[in-house]
Amino acid sequence: MLAVQEANKLLMDVKIPQIDGIYSFNIPAEMVTNVTDTFVLITDANLNTDIFGSNDFYSVNRMIEIQIYFELHPDFDPEKLLIRIMKLFKHDGWIIGEERGFKLDIDTNQLYVTFYVKKEEKTLN
């Protein structure tokens, strides 16, 4: 299963009430200007090989980018939602990477945050 699909399933299974939608790879056209919902976009960041020996590699680190777009006037603390999602991934065996800070979208004035998680997977050879 692709790392993006695995992350999507993890978030979908938990059903966090503040999240109105979870999207993989891209945002549907009708959601691009939506400022009334909070949604998550999950995309691939990279895949790096690891654990080298005998002229081969035996592990891959699968990194994904997670962006949370917040509704214009949330009735919850965006930082607490971010931390909840980070803890969810941490407890599922993902390594929390760089978090880029909260920013405002220049087109919609929505608050959003971007962070990265990665997971090591052993290869079968």
Rank of each mutant, 00 (worst) to 15 (best):
E98L: 11
L47N: 15
F25A: 10
I83G: 08
T36W: 13
E6P: 07
G97D: 04
L41K: 00
M86Y: 05
L72F: 00
K80G: 10
K80Y: 11
L81Y: 01
Y116A: 04
F39R: 01
V14L: 13
T43H: 06
K87F: 13
V113N: 01
N55H: 13
L104G: 01
T123A: 02
I85P: 00
Y58F: 10
Y23F: 14
P78I: 03
Q5M: 12
G93H: 03
I85A: 00
N48R: 14
V32T: 13
E79C: 09
M86K: 15
M31N: 13
K103P: 01
T108Y: 00
T38H: 00
V117I: 12
R100G: 05
I42T: 00
I83E: 10
I96C: 01
H73T: 14
T33F: 13
G53F: 04
N46Q: 11
N61H: 15
F102I: 02
N125D: 11
R84C: 11
A7C: 08
L104K: 07
L81H: 02
I16K: 07
K122S: 10
I19A: 03
I16M: 07
T114R: 06
D50F: 11
M31G: 06
I27D: 05
T49W: 12
K90C: 12
K118A: 15
N8M: 15
S59F: 11
D92I: 15
T49P: 11
L104A: 02
I27R: 03
E6I: 11
I19S: 01
A3H: 14
E120M: 07
E98V: 12
L124D: 06
G93Y: 03
I95F: 15
Q67H: 05
N125L: 10
T33I: 14
R84H: 12
A7Y: 03
I42Y: 02
N34A: 04
D107T: 13
D13K: 14
Y116H: 12
I42Q: 01
L47Q: 15
L124P: 05
I68R: 01
N26L: 10
I22H: 04
K122W: 08
D77W: 03
A29M: 13
K119N: 03
P74W: 02
N61M: 10
F25R: 12
N48F: 12
D56C: 07
E65H: 08
L41I: 01
K103D: 00
R100E: 11
Y116W: 08
